[in-house]
Design a protein around this nucleic acid. Structure first.
Length: 469
RNA sequence: GGCCUUGUCGUCUAGUGGACUAGGACACCAGGUUUUCAUCCUGGUAAUCGCGGGUUCGAAUCCCGCCAAGGUCACCA
């Protein structure tokens, strides 16, 4: 049987880092087995629906080089891939369940439900529907329908049954049905609930492996109950641990940046983010830390997936992003920084600059800060200079540098001459060149000084040295 | 609170009864390269393996109990 996996996000806003994390595993497992990866959009919650969110999910996936084989825009043999377009399908199947007496109509009002829940909580009981409408007679039901009373459909859950499933990551999980409510399958607005839609869709779309977040473990038995009610084959389940905030709670935007757009804006490379995310959820059999999605696809196995919830650590992500940036060619970097660059720099010069700063770049968004002094005359803070050495010495260093560069230009020879001068006059070499560095760049940390100055150019360098004194 | 899941350096992890004086990576510290920063190289600090019992000649690894953290209990997904 062909392996088929899916992600089923809700179009409720910016694509979430957790969605991508899950997608990486679903995608990889499908590809490893020459199977298909499907994107289905779960938009049954009309109140949280956000226009355009589906497109954003797709473009985020694409940014990570994850292309679904089937989706609302790619199409496929099992569509439609948007739940709001599948309403008739759900109604039909849920109706079958009523006919089979596995589900029933419920006419209870929100007020009644709230009331019984309050009572149960007060009596320290498990809040649960009391199956009141299960005992309605045929006539009572018909009357209520004729009066136009709003209704939902509920699954008739029989207590006292052990539901057992074998999680591919966690092993056997056993949960008793006692704790389950009679799940609503069809809401009064005619939309299915998540639980109903997910089971019907996964079955009809022939999903073989449901790889999703740990938060779904406790509803998995409810889904299994539904599969059984329908008399359908039960797919395999694998529950990935949840990404965590520093305080160990489920990752959220209060503590972390969860929006994929943010990572893009900051200048993280998708392959670096991918690598980092994979590191959190899986360990390479050879202990490698840096590897591509392709390699992951080749080497993936469920037994190396970690069970604990990892804390999202931006420091390590920064490190790995730097690793990927350093591995690029100058031409690639030039292309990558283009959307971030606020300066208009001539092509050859830009390439020379990139050679100097590539090792120093951790995130693409830092580019302007790193290269500003190549294009703009910097502001000099006299106080910083005078903390290093006295004003008359600063002037002396500026003068001798000016004179030497004016004579010889900017080259090794100039550098040697200045160094010898500094030694001769008893200067601390580091301080001596630091003064030139700050006067010409406005910064205490730059690429090698003379490489930098030769890009800045003789004329501009001289001007800055003059300003410095 | 019930149920479920998880628990090894600050963080991510390796580890499936003896090769564990618990290994690697990030971060941190020190040294080297260097006129600064970064890269690179070398070294270091850091986990009594959640706690307590047991099984065993031997336990991070097996068993039991406890504790802690997280998730979940909706006409949200």
């Amino acid at each position: 049987m062909r392996v088929r996996t899916r992600i089923a996000p809700s179009p409720t806003g910016d694509p979430h880092i957790g969605t991508i994390y899950q997608a990486l595993f679903d995608y990889a497992y499908a590809k490893q087995n020459k199977g298909n990866f499907i994107l289905r959009v779960e938009d049954t919650d009309r109140e949280r629906f956000v226009e355009g969110a589906t497109q954003k999910i797709l473009s985020s996936l694409k940014w990570f080089s994850i292309e679904p084989d089937e989706s609302p825009v790619h199409g496929g043999d099992f569509g439609p891939y948007v739940q709001s377009e599948r309403l008739d399908i759900y109604k039909k199947y849920i109706n079958d369940l009523i006919l089979k007496k596995e589900a029933y109509l419920c006419f209870c009002t929100k007020e009644r439900l709230d009331h019984i829940r309050e009572e149960q909580i007060k009596n320290k009981q498990q809040p649960k529907y009391d199956k009141h409408c299960l005992n309605l007679t045929k006539k009572e039901i018909d009357d209520l329908i004729n009066k136009g009373t709003p209704s939902v459909v509920r699954l008739n859950v029989k207590p006292g049954i052990d539901i057992i499933f074998n999680d591919l990551i966690r092993g056997e999980i056993k949960i008793k049905t006692d704790s389950f409510d009679d799940q609503v399958l069809l809401k009064s607005d005619g939309y299915p609930t998540y639980h109903a839609a997910v089971v019907i869709d996964d079955h009809l779309m022939k999903i073989t492996h449901i790889i999703r977040g740990e938060e779904w473990i406790s509803s998995t038995p409810k889904h299994i109950l539904l599969y059984k009610a329908f008399e359908w084959d039960i797919p395999m389940f694998a529950h990935l641990s949840l990404l965590r905030n520093r305080d160990k709670s489920k990752i959220s935007k209060r503590h972390n940046n969860t929006s994929i757009d943010w990572y893009k804006k900051e200048g993280y490379l998708p392959e670096a983010l991918t690598n980092y995310l994979l590191l959190l959820g899986w360990s390479h059999p050879e202990g490698k830390e840096v590897y591509s999605l392709d390699e992951f696809i080749k080497k993936f196995s469920f037994d190396r997936v970690s069970k604990g919830g990892p804390i999202f650590d931006i420091d390590k992500l920064n490190w790995i992003n730097g690793v990927y940036i350093r591995s690029k060619s100058v031409i690639e970097i030039k292309k990558l920084i283009k959307p971030y660059l606020i300066y208009d720099i001539e092509n050859k010069k830009l390439e020379e600059i990139i050679k100097l700063i590539q090792d120093r770049l951790k995130k693409l968004s830092e580019i302007n800060d790193l290269i500003s002094f190549f294009v703009e005359t910097p502001q000099i803070d006299q106080e910083i200079l005078e903390n290093i050495i006295s004003k008359d010495k600063i002037d002396e260093i500026c003068d001798i540098s000016y004179k030497t560069i004016e004579d010889k230009g900017i080259n090794r020879d100039t550098e040697e001459t200045l160094r010898n001068y500094a030694i001769e006059k008893g200067y601390n070499i580091g301080d001596f060149f630091m003064i030139i560095r700050i006067v010409t760049t406005g910064k205490k940390a730059t690429p090698p000084l003379f490489d930098t100055l030769s890009i800045i150019g003789k004329k501009e360098t001289l001007k800055r040295l003059k300003n410095g004194r």
